Computed example of a mutant assay.
Amino acid sequence: MFNKKYRIAGITAVALAGAISLAGCTTNLGGNDSNGTMDGGMMGNNKSASAFSGTDIMFAQMMIPHHQQAVDMSTLAETRTTNPEVLALAKQIKDAQAPEIKQMKAWIESSGSSTDMGHDMGMGGMLTDEQMTALENAQGAAFDKLYLEGMIGHHEGALQMATMIENSSNSEAKELAANIIKSQSAEIEKMKQMLEAL
């Protein structure tokens, strides 16, 4: 019985050392929790060069609500303006960002992480509750001005966030960063011209 106790203690110690060892590896892979990195490492069917890192997942956790607000802002345009340019832009933004939200949710799901970070990271360009309320209450040209001003800042915040993963070792994450930077940079220039023309 004495030996059995020591044998169990020894097995427990080995298991604990193994767990610590694995935890150390996951930290090096990007600071994600062990489930996220270990599950992510099994994504053999993913077109990525490697599993999503902790930074990739953190980016997705931040960008999902950021993109969702852009979609919400653009949905408001459908009933608050008749400006064809603003309506076309709003549709373009929704058509691009809604699928990207689904894509990033799939990253998080595949890694075993949560879409909720549990704390505020201070995402750049997000409209405050007061700004969203003002946008909801605006109509016509007043809406167009608030929408364009808000979306320019929103896009600028997204460009800053995209730099987190523009050099990711995961090909899907890297491609998404490149797409966001290219499309939203072009949209910023377009919106600035539209704002000047109002």
Rank of each mutant, 00 (worst) to 15 (best):
I11Q: 12
T12D: 05
A13H: 09
V14N: 00
V14Y: 03
A15W: 11
A15P: 11
A15C: 11
L16I: 15
A17D: 11
G18N: 06
A19Q: 06
A19V: 15
I20E: 08
S21D: 11
S21I: 03
C25K: 05
C25I: 05
T26F: 01
T26R: 04
N28S: 04
G31D: 07
N32Q: 08
G36V: 00
G36F: 00
T37Q: 06
M38L: 14
M38E: 05
M38Q: 05
D39E: 10
D39M: 14
G40F: 10
G40T: 06
G41M: 15
M42C: 04
M42P: 00
M43A: 02
G44A: 09
G44Y: 15
G44V: 10
N46L: 02
K47P: 03
A49M: 13
A49F: 11
S50R: 14
S53W: 09
S53P: 13
G54W: 15
I57A: 02
M58I: 12
M58L: 15
A60I: 14
A60Y: 15
M62H: 01
M63T: 02
P65Q: 06
H67M: 11
Q68F: 08
Q68N: 13
Q68G: 08
Q68M: 14
Q69K: 11
Q69H: 09
V71C: 06
D72Q: 07
S74I: 07
T75C: 01
L76Q: 11
A77W: 02
T82Y: 00
T82C: 02
N83C: 03
N83G: 01
P84G: 01
P84M: 02
P84F: 03
E85I: 09
L87V: 01
L87A: 00
A90C: 09
A90V: 01
K91Y: 06
Q92V: 10
I93C: 10
I93Q: 03
D95K: 02
E100A: 03
M104E: 10
M104R: 12
